[in-house]
């Protein structure tokens, strides 16, 4: 069984990799298995964790969970064409709660905190900063400022304003470049992990 299992894993791994050569039957088979298995995986997991774990055994004496179950039932009403419109209610509920929650969360963490951290004594407290820090602080202040100017929609990007926006887009591009570099790093690591499985765990060729 142990041998069978690792060969199955290797077979499927190679199946996905074979897509690099071209779209072929081996890949399509692996892909179909993947779509089926992953849909089923989430289906089962969500049932046991959320419906069973959270509601069926987990509700305790918290009557509020019945509201959740009720919303869930309304959602399933979509299966009955005549009353399908009622599934808009739970949807409205979720969207409303998300909107409220995100409004506050993003405002406090991403606006307030980030503005707080951008506002700093550029030369250090009591002019204590080293040249390295000083340049860095100025770069951050200028970059954040001009980046925000780029996102200004209700004013034409011309003149000084346009120039600032241009500087902003430069900063955004550097950010994307850095992000790109890190993504390459990440993806290569994952490939290394997979090839380590093939050559190491499966075939035992790595010392």
């Amino acid at each position: 069984m142990e041998h069978f299992a690792i060969w199955v894993a290797a077979f499927l791994t190679m199946g996905i990799i074979s897509f690099l050569y071209k779209d072929n039957a081996w890949y399509k088979l692996s892909e179909a298995i993947f779509v089926g298995i992953s849909a089923g995986y989430w289906f089962v997991t969500l049932f046991w964790d959320n419906i069973y774990g959270k509601f069926w055994v987990g509700r305790g004496d918290d009557a509020m969970l019945y509201i959740g179950a009720f919303l869930g039932l309304l959602m399933l009403m979509r299966l009955v064409p005549k009353v399908g419109w009622i599934s808009r209610w739970p949807l409205a509920f979720i969207v409303g709660a998300t909107a409220g929650f995100y409004l506050i969360n993003y405002f406090s963490s991403n606006v307030m905190r980030q503005v707080e951290d951008t506002i700093m004594p550029l030369l250090g407290t009591d002019y204590s900063a080293t040249t390295y820090d000083m340049i860095g602080n100025i770069v951050i202040a200028v970059g954040t400022f001009s980046g925000l100017v780029y996102f200004f929609f209700s004013k034409e990007h011309k003149g000084v304003f346009g120039g600032t926006a241009k500087v902003g887009i430069f900063f955004l591009m550097i950010t994307f470049g850095a992000s790109f570099g890190y993504t390459v790093m990440s993806r290569m690591s994952l490939l290394i992990g997979r090839l380590d499985f093939l050559f190491g765990d499966w075939l035992g060729m790595i010392k």
């Binding site: 996905i16 993947f34 779509v35 298995i37 992953s38 849909a39 989430w42």
Partner: peptide
Amino acid sequence: LTDDQFGYAAG
């Protein structure tokens, strides 16, 4: 298609 990120991408 599927909830799964890569299952979806593959699809």
